[in-house]
């Protein structure tokens, strides 16, 4: 699956795995790919767009936490009531369906643009395409218009 991935895109997937581990998640989710995108240096195309948008790694983390708290509140649960154990995973997180689908979609986006390699930008574009799920909900929490952001990312590389 990763043959067409550039060095940077492969590194992004590895970073997403670290993000998942750090959060104690048994799976690499689309949100971990988004967190990995937010770690890209401001000198890179995606990094500079996210920096211009004012979307830091910390902002994405906070937006994901807010999304979680609000989603639980919708069914009457206050996450603040829980004392959760610190995250601790040793087993290698496996790729969740939403992350896999984003990576597959990044290939389709690259092909449709006539790009030979999959870059981090293609992965972010694929993540921004999702209409439902944690990623679009967290972006809405952060006050990000994902379609506007998507246009900026597409124009940046």
């Amino acid at each position: 699956m990763f043959e067409r991935f550039s060095h940077e895109a492969r590194h992004l997937v590895t970073t997403a795995e670290s993000e998942a581990r750090e959060l104690g998640s048994p799976t690499i989710e689309a949100e971990h790919l988004l967190l990995a995108c937010a770690r890209l240096a401001p000198g890179t195309p995606v990094g500079s767009v996210l920096a211009d948008e004012g979307l830091t790694h910390e902002d994405v983390r906070e937006a994901l936490e807010a999304e979680r708290a609000h989603s639980l509140a919708a069914v009457g649960i206050d996450i603040g009531d829980f004392e959760l154990p610190p995250a601790h995973t040793l087993t290698r997180p496996r790729m969740a369906a939403n992350a896999k689908s984003a990576l597959e979609h990044s290939l389709r986006i690259a092909l449709s643009r006539g790009d030979k390699r999959i870059e981090p930008g293609h992965i972010l574009l694929a993540l921004l395409r999702a209409e439902a799920g944690t990623v679009p909900r967290a972006l809405a929490e952060a006050g990000v218009d994902r379609l506007v952001l998507s246009d900026r990312v597409a124009a940046a590389f």
């Binding site: 104690g24 639980l72 919708a74 069914v75 649960i77 829980f82 154990p85 995250a87 799920g133």
Partner: peptide, 12 residues
Amino acid sequence: AAVVALRRLADQ
């Protein structure tokens, strides 16, 4: 979204 968050909470 609550179902997703509840599953994660249950895992934790």
